[in-house]
């Protein structure tokens, strides 16, 4: 699961972005994308935040909306920043990516 080091120079910004992403839920599973382990990395450069994330499957019917909402969540939490969402498929998402909270929410 993605974590932000306390020594990271953009710790505060990344933390705000990550907290905002807890509000973005997978509509089918009803669990947020952070606990599902779909957030891989966050990068900050000038006034933009790059989110590297994945989906449970490349042909996820809800993928477009999840990406849109991830962008809205970050931009609402960090006014003045533009969110750039980049989908990545490596490493492939699997059960191990889900946090303990995510597993509990899924009843696993």
């Amino acid at each position: 699961m993605f974590e932000i080091g306390i020594s990271d120079p953009f710790y505060e910004i990344k933390s705000k972005a990550l907290i905002a992403l807890y509000e973005v839920k997978d509509p089918e599973l009803g669990v947020n994308i952070v606990d599902l382990g779909m957030v891989y990395n966050l990068e900050v450069s000038n006034a933009s935040i790059i989110l590297y994330m994945t989906l449970s499957t490349p042909s996820c019917p809800m993928g477009g909306l999840i990406i849109s909402y991830a962008k809205i969540a970050i931009e609402n939490a960090l006014p003045g920043y533009e969110a750039d969402i980049r989908l990545v498929w490596e490493p492939k998402w699997n059960y191990e990516c889900i946090s303990t909270e995510g597993r509990a929410a899924l009843g696993l």
Partner: peptide, 9 residues
Amino acid sequence: MLPHRQQVF
């Protein structure tokens, strides 16, 4: 995958 909300039918 649907890239944008605008492409919803």
